[in-house]
Amino acid sequence: MKQKNAVVSLLFLFSMSLLFYTGCTDKYEPTSPISGSGSSCVHCHLNAELLKEVATPIPPPTGEAGEG
């Protein structure tokens, strides 16, 4: 009986770990603490190479700009 309980517990722990792992979409591990929902934004915006890949190029400004 005790053996059966141990196997069930292990199975439960394994399935919970699997669920937790697959449920987490953000693998980024910042060196500084980031609060909850911001983490996926930071995942991209701290990555200069990735931003260069996905950024939409902006044409350079033309002429003299501004209030002089």
Partner: peptide, 18 residues
């Protein structure tokens, strides 16, 4: 819109992006 990591240590950087 490249954010440097040290921004995250500033008062504004400690708020969530959203």
């Amino acid at each position: 819109v490249y954010v440097t990591e040290d921004f995250l240590e500033t008062p504004h950087g400690k708020s969530s992006c959203v």
